[in-house]
Amino acid sequence: MSEIAFFGAVEIGLVYALVALGVYLSFRVLDFPDLTVDGSFPLGAAVCATLLVAGVNPWIASLVAALAGSMAGLVTATLNVRFKILHLLASILTMIALFSVNLRVMGRPNVALLMQDTVLTPFYGLGLPDHVVRPLVVLVVVVVVVLLLARFLNSEFGLAMRATGVNARMARAQGVETDFHIYAGMALSNGLCALAGALFAQTNGFADVTTGIGTIVVGLAAVIVGETVLPARAMLWALVGCVVGSILYRLAVQLALSADAIGLQASDLNLVTAVLVAVALILPRMRLKAASKKREAVR
């Protein structure tokens, strides 16, 4: 793997670390299987790119993109909480709707960012090569997000959100307004995914409606890899695990793609990821079964 390819993999891993954090919030903290992500990631890219073309400050554009993602999360949460639509279905509805929305936002299937200033522009002239600057800037954003998120999940409000996902009945009996926490968590989760989309557009120099496909699976893969290499209970370390998982996943992908012997091409990525996640979901169950068989045998 060349140096450029290595830094490229780390960069994309860091961008998708934000997706992993969002997916961790919905799937793990709230126990809400949410596919909205496939729509909120390109939504973030679309909103950010459109605003940048219109000459808006890149940080503000990124923030607005994140807010747009939060709105998408709120739509899914409303369909589920208020109108009792099954969470998976609710999120698929939002995701499909977002495909149209994203086209509307951009006015065309893709937007190129050629001359526009991005959040990266001020750091390009500081002596480091561009392919190092990009992951560094994203790293700073990711570190800040991880610290804030860990702080949040350890607060009284965050603890109530975790309880909502673990045992909603108990949480309500302890006075937690579980519905409100689902809204808040889903907004936060999709806001992070949209922020990832905004950074993706700025680091890659384009936004495209099709970039969202498979985002959720990539995010899940990162969460699962993270949980495997860093099985932690403390909030901060669990979140760091998501980030590490995302980077490792991208490095593994890069390695597989650059090894000619395997004969994989970039378009095989979704298949490989899906297989990886499926295996990761099946393994623990097999292990449980094996363990109970063993117990029976002992008896």
Partner: peptide
Amino acid sequence: ARGRRRGLGFA
């Protein structure tokens, strides 16, 4: 924290 508003202070 039952019956109190849950804020952003450490739990």
